[in-house]
Amino acid sequence: MKDFEKGLVGLYDDLMIGPGYTFEDFKKSRYFCNQDGILIVDLEEKVYIDGRCYLACLFFRNGAIYMLSLICCDRKFSEIDEPKRKAFHDEILKGYGIEGKQEYSWGSISSDYDSRGNVSSINLVYN
């Protein structure tokens, strides 16, 4: 389930991320495995959204969700081809009517490539 207008993304049947989600909320979920809310929280189980498979990471700031990062793993990309994954993510977002960085009252959605980390992801950044 997803509702980009409201910033909501259902990662699993029992884990909905959106504005106001906190690390304390995450600690109550079955996905909490003693992760540190200060570091990146990598979810161990793959996420399926609209039939696509993703790796998901949660970033918290001052105990509240700051960013949900999704990496589509439907296709394999070599390390040198990581910018091609960015283009693939652009295509996925275009299918939802999102081109470039889309701003909302709760934050934004964008497809980004980090050249320092050589990683491409779809990022939902919360205000």
Rank of each mutant, 00 (worst) to 15 (best):
G20W: 11
G20Q: 14
T22K: 06
T22E: 06
F23W: 07
D25I: 08
F26K: 11
F26W: 10
K28M: 09
S29E: 09
S29A: 07
Y31T: 03
F32E: 03
D36A: 05
L39H: 08
V41N: 02
D42H: 13
D42I: 06
E44T: 08
E45N: 08
Y48K: 15
I49K: 02
D50W: 00
D50H: 03
C53N: 13
A56N: 02
A56W: 06
R61V: 00
R61Q: 04
N62G: 11
N62I: 07
G63A: 14
Y66R: 13
Y66G: 03
M67H: 05
M67F: 02
S69W: 08
I71S: 12
C73E: 13
D74K: 05
R75C: 05
D81H: 10
E82N: 12
K84M: 11
K84L: 13
R85I: 13
K86I: 03
A87G: 12
F88C: 04
H89A: 00
D90S: 01
D90P: 02
E91W: 06
E91G: 07
K94C: 11
G97H: 03
E99C: 08
E99Q: 05
G100T: 04
G100M: 07
K101G: 01
G107P: 00
I109V: 12
S110C: 08
